[in-house]
Amino acid sequence: MSFWIVNTLNGLSLAMILFLLAAGLTLIFGLMHIINMAHGSFYLLGGYIAITAIRMSGNFVVGAIIAVIAIAILGTLVQRLLLAKLYKQEMPQALLTLGLLFIIADIAFFTWGGDPQLVPQPALFQGAVRIFGVVYPLYRLFLIGWGLAVAFLLWMFLERTKIGAVVRAGMDDEEMVRGLGINMPLVFTGIFALGSALAGLGGVLGGPLLGMFPGADFEVVLLAFVVVTVGGLGSIRGAFLGSLLVGLVDNFGNVWFPQLSLFTIFVPMVVVLALKPTGLLGRT
């Protein structure tokens, strides 16, 4: 029994990291139709900046805030200076972000080196607690809580605020929203910055578990791609559902079939795409 509890909780904590990435990816795609290859780079930079900032300030919260703000600013610049020039050109946008993936990976390697580094855990959540009859690391529980809180806040933002309504309308018919006098370029920049910041937050919060190393950017963005492909591009609820599915499958797959690691992730993707090519909750 304890096997199931521990591994389910492990899967859920991975799922929450994935959700932080997939939420941004799916929002950005839903609104701007950009396949953001550099999304994992924001995750990686978020983690690395947090490591440096926490080391310098000696405080997890301060470091986390600095990292998330830095990534939000970077996202704003990337969207304003580069992607905005390629408005509605799907392939060039994907190629541009692929280029950014390489550039940022090289800069990160140059700056932080090739050895894996962990983001220090916040002091408050170190150690373990007893839950459902098993002893479990407190930090992972904290992570699950954070993921759920972010999911709830995002849902509230999209469904219950005026800006959220604009974003949803923009996903359905952008030109009509423009016609109503809404400043869509600003909304684009805002959502891109928000998505990037979420990826950066994913790096900060996932960093203590998964660590930062060259190639981590690509590893997570690939999992996030699988998540949004399973959940359906452009849907936050789909991203949440997909994260749970992929997080759990990946974790149990790694336990049962360690030789096949990534292959086990592919299975849910094959099944979903075979049944519903646009993903579980995809927009058609």
Partner: peptide, 13 residues
């Protein structure tokens, strides 16, 4: 890698 990245960005733009 940096150079490949720059080439991609240049081609895309």
């Amino acid at each position: 890698l940096f150079v490949i990245g720059l080439i991609y960005v240049g081609i895309a733009l």
